[in-house]
């Protein structure tokens, strides 16, 4: 009989707790989804340089800025922008019907974790405008320096194509660029993080892969075609 009572009790506990959890999850869901959306918008606005990184913005302000200036579209194999959902989303910063800049999602392996972030380029299709990482599990002080301002500002103004218009991506070197790269090549390289070789190399690789995925679109921009 004792085990019977245990079963009934256990069943009762499961029902009560299950109900409580369902209730909590259902009530809080809208808040959580909004938070996730605003967080993504915040990162996109930051990488596009719309918001000032040293200032904090309320969720409503972020939402407003985003609705006003950013369009989420998709890029196809030919580099055309459409609303047809694909695995190549693109975030266009459009002001007065002109494309000012665009952001693409980037991701790849670091040392301990996958790095997720956004990379933004100028409307010329060759100059980097900014980079940000919103999720990773790298070592604080070493690999996690990819979040640091010095590392991210490194990328601003670098070129992803050489003088002949061939795609080169932007490389992350070991140590400082001035020590290992000749002056005419420096616009394609950024300083690496000392003590975090694997993470630096990860960033190098993910930039190559992800920029390549959007190369068709970037080429059209470089040919000065009208893309939107």
């Amino acid at each position: 009989m004792a085990s019977n009572r245990s079963l009934v009790f256990a069943f009762g506990m499961c029902v009560v707790c299950g109900f409580g959890l369902t209730l909590a999850a259902t009530v809080l869901k809208p808040h959580q989804l909004r938070n996730q959306r605003v967080d993504q918008q915040r990162n996109i606005l930051k990488v596009l340089g719309v918001t000032d990184p040293n200032q904090s913005y309320s969720a409503d302000a972020i939402d407003d800025y985003y609705q006003q200036s950013v369009q989420k579209r998709y890029v196809n194999d030919q580099g055309q922008v459409s609303d047809q959902v694909s695995d190549r989303p693109i975030y266009l910063l459009v002001q007065n019907n002109t494309l000012r800049a665009y952001a693409i999602p980037i991701s790849g392996a670091g040392l301990w974790s996958t790095l997720y972030g956004y990379l933004s380029l100028e409307a010329d299709g060759e100059t980097l405008r900014g980079i940000t990482f919103y999720q990773h599990g790298e070592t604080p002080g070493l690999g996690a320096e990819i979040d640091a301002a010095w590392f991210q500002s490194n990328f601003v103004g670098k070129k992803i194509v050489d003088a002949n218009g061939t795609f080169t991506s932007v490389g992350v070197v070991r140590g400082a660029v001035v020590d290992s790269i000749s002056p005419d090549q420096r616009m394609h390289y950024v300083d690496g993080i000392s003590g975090a070789t694997v993470t630096s190399r990860g960033v190098d690789t993910l930039l190559k892969t992800d920029l390549q995925r959007y190369e068709a679109f970037a080429k059209r921009l470089r040919r000065k075609e009208r893309v939107i």
Binding site: A2, S6, L21, A24
Partner: peptide, 30 residues
């Protein structure tokens, strides 16, 4: 609480509370 399943009951209660706390954090302190 029946003595023979008390650890499981403790865990159910604690786990439920933790999940609720986690959900609240996600909703209000993202």
């Amino acid at each position: 609480i029946p003595k023979n399943i008390r650890i499981i009951v403790e865990l159910i209660v604690i786990a439920s509370l933790v999940i609720v706390a986690d959900q609240c954090l996600k909703a209000f302190m993202f």
